[in-house]
């Protein structure tokens, strides 16, 4: 009996290992590829969806499956495990992964301005300088990007934790609605329009505190792939990047707006149309802030600043030379 159990255990273990290995082979050997997003389907991933729905990948001989992300998903891990060939990751994820020896490569930077900002009620508060936060209750997600960004802002302004009251942010906005917190971190192009509308309905107006306006450029979502993919299937990477960026360019064209919203509604069925339109407009301003901005361009200085911030805050033990794994898309 025991021998049978042992045999079955060994078989199951070996089977699971083989299954994992075969996943890598399938994903990287053919021109089918999984593209793992960072977050759920909404306006912030419209270019990714648009490229897929409008056949840009297929036109370049690629069969790409665009998969939703979420809090429990990590594209970089999936790249290494062979579950995905491409993915979206934030700069801090990339830098952390590099610090732990992950062979990740950045092939495009989607957001030129980080959508992570702080919302506040503009009737009672006007945050034009970081020092204006003195004595205020500031929402921070401990362990999140916003904590790193806020700590950097405070250090730059010479503020310490004693100068503000930190409120530990959770996933629902009740403390902000209840006015227990003065400034609350939000993703400007997804959560902010919803909050803005809810507060607007109550006659309250809001404003945003944007860290980039105060000299802290912390890079957000970028497209990544594995070093192996880059070396062994450079053509696939090139075709994928071109198709993806074409999708983004077209999705953010003003003249395509109605078609884009129609496409988005197929994937995001819960967001009301007026909110969705606002999310799209804001996404456009974060990805293509200027008319001449080339979508996907790498802001190397911002990447280096992100690494420096993480190093200063002991989030990585030593420099990772992030510039070495960045491949400019143009």
């Amino acid at each position: 009996m025991n021998r049978h159990i042992k045999k079955i255990s060994v078989f199951l273990f070996l089977f699971s290992i083989c299954f994992s290995l075969s996943g890598i082979r399938v994903s990287e050997a053919s021109e089918t590829a999984v593209y793992r997003l960072k977050w759920l389907f909404n306006a912030s991933v419209i270019g990714d969806i648009y490229a897929d729905v409008h056949g840009h990948f297929k036109a370049r001989g690629l069969d790409v499956t665009v998969k939703e992300g979420g809090p429990e998903r990590d594209a970089i891990r999936e790249l290494e495990l062979g579950y995905a060939a491409f993915g979206v990751a934030s700069a801090d994820q990339v830098i952390r992964a590099l610090a732990k020896g992950s062979p990740v490569v950045v092939i495009a930077q989607l957001f030129q301005i980080n959508p992570l900002q702080w919302i506040y009620r503009s009737e009672n508060l006007d945050v034009t300088r970081v020092e204006d936060l003195k004595g205020k209750v500031v929402g921070i997600t401990f362990g999140g990007n916003d904590e790193t960004i806020m700590r950097t802002l405070m250090a730059k302004a010479g503020l310490t934790e004693k100068d503000i009251s930190v409120f530990s942010v959770r996933y629902d906005y009740t403390p902000f609605y209840q006015k227990r917190v003065d400034v609350w971190p939000v993703y400007r192009n997804s959560q902010a329009p919803i909050l803005e509308k809810k507060l607007g309905d109550l006659g309250e107006s809001v404003a945003y505190f944007n860290p980039a306006a105060h000299g802290v450029k912390f890079v957000a979502n970028s497209v990544v792939t594995s070093k192996r993919m880059m070396e062994e299937q450079a053509d696939v990477v090139k075709n994928f990047t071109s198709a993806l960026l074409q999708g983004w360019e077209e999705a953010l064209e003003l003249e395509n707006e109605e078609d884009v919203l129609k496409t988005l509604r197929q994937f995001d069925k819960d967001t009301p149309p007026d909110i969705m339109r606002k999310q799209l407009v804001i996404t456009r301003s974060l990805i293509k802030p200027f008319k001449d901005t080339r979508i996907g361009m790498i802001d190397l200085e911002a990447w280096q600043q992100t690494e420096k911030i993480m190093l200063e805050q002991n989030q990585i033990p030593s420099p990772v030379a992030v510039e070495k794994v960045i491949r400019k898309p143009f």
Binding site: I17, L21, I24, E80, L81, A97, K100, G101, S102, P103
Partner: peptide
């Protein structure tokens, strides 16, 4: 043991 076996068999980084 299972985790380390997977790590070393698949040559995964410390990030995974």
């Amino acid at each position: 043991l299972v985790l380390f076996s997977v790590k070393y068999l698949l040559d995964l980084s410390d990030y995974v």
